[in-house]
């Protein structure tokens, strides 16, 4: 479940050590934008030591490395891959070839560290028009890819616009992400909402992106977590209805029937799948995600 993934600045011990206490589904230990150039090496050492020595409970732990257009990304990977992270978040992915480069580097590091090859998943940040355009091919470029994420500020800049309160400028890119992610069988995760104090704005944006089909949202402040969870968590009524549908669909399948009726509504395969997804989000059944 990836309703929320919380960014933690890689050079901030307070946040790195306490970040898992805020209840996000995932953590992003950030070596990229949150860390000034002069602190890159120091942050890399700190993040490595925290990963080596600390337990993050149930959280999915990822590290945002520096971009492939810098000289830093290979050292970033070397510092964190041996210590059992779930994945890396790669900024400014634009082409399938970039995934091949990351894949090769990860495989080599995993081999050296006796980590099973393929363990480290890749979350692709698509922060340019070219990245968005290539989303489907990028998602299929490596079996490691588990999610694609549209950019926010960087993407708006590359589109030669700026971020508005309504998010009009990102709307098409977000829709494109959903189609590409579903076609490729990976998760679609939304970019962070930048105005930390604007709870109504966050709520409005999350409701919209959830309706588009996003599986979750990156967050930049602990206060954003409960708002996003509240929107993503199914209501009691939704859970009860989903349980009925799933059970009825299973019974029908066992009896060799196709479409059936539950509470006067036709239930066919897509409806049953949606009900299963509701139960997955409620933590009642386990998903079959990549």
């Amino acid at each position: 479940m990836r309703r929320t993934m919380l960014y933690l600045p890689g050079n901030n011990p307070n946040m790195l050590l306490r970040g898992h206490l805020f209840g996000a589904d995932g953590l992003i230990l950030d070596l990229e934008d949150a860390v000034p150039r002069s602190e890159k090496s120091s942050a890399r050492i700190l993040v490595r030591e925290v990963l080596k020595n600390r337990d993050f409970d149930w959280c999915e732990v990822t590290v945002r490395i520096n971009g492939l257009d810098t000289e830093l990304w290979r050292d970033d990977l070397a510092a964190v891959v041996p210590y059992g992270i779930h994945g890396v978040r790669v900024p400014k992915v634009e082409t399938p070839q970039m995934l091949k480069d990351i894949d090769d580097a990860l495989s080599s590091l995993e081999s050296m560290a006796s980590v099973p090859v393929g363990t480290t998943k890749v979350f692709c940040l698509l922060e340019t028009a070219l990245g968005i355009w290539n989303a489907y091919d990028i998602a299929l470029a490596s079996r490691r890819v588990t999610a694609i994420i549209p950019g926010g500020e960087d993407l708006a800049a590359d589109l030669r616009t700026s971020r508005s309160k309504e998010g009009t400028e990102l709307e098409w890119a977000r829709r494109m992400m959903i189609v590409a992610a579903r076609a490729a069988g990976v998760d679609a995760l939304d970019t962070a909402f930048p105005r930390v104090g604007d709870e109504e704005g966050l709520r409005r944006e999350t409701e919209f992106t959830k309706q588009l089909g996003f599986d979750g949202k990156s967050v930049i402040h602990p206060n954003q977590i409960p708002i996003v969870h509240e929107i993503y968590d199914p209501t009691e009524a939704e859970i009860e209805s989903a349980k009925k549908i799933v059970q009825a669909a299973r019974d029908a399948a066992a009896r060799g029937l196709g479409a059936i009726s539950v509470d006067g509504r036709m239930v066919d395969l897509p409806v049953a799948r949606r009900a299963e997804y509701t139960l997955e989000r409620a933590g009642i059944i386990t998903g079959r995600g990549r």
Binding site: P13, L17, R37, S38, K40, S41, S42, I45, L46, R48, E49, V50, K52, N53, R54
Partner: peptide, 21 residues
């Protein structure tokens, strides 16, 4: 905590040696 102290000592020493930025 010791994890942070260790990381900061390592970074300061590698800077002292001119190994990292």
């Amino acid at each position: 905590v010791d994890v942070v102290l260790g990381a900061r000592v390592e970074a300061a020493y590698l800077r002292f040696k001119g190994v990292i930025d």
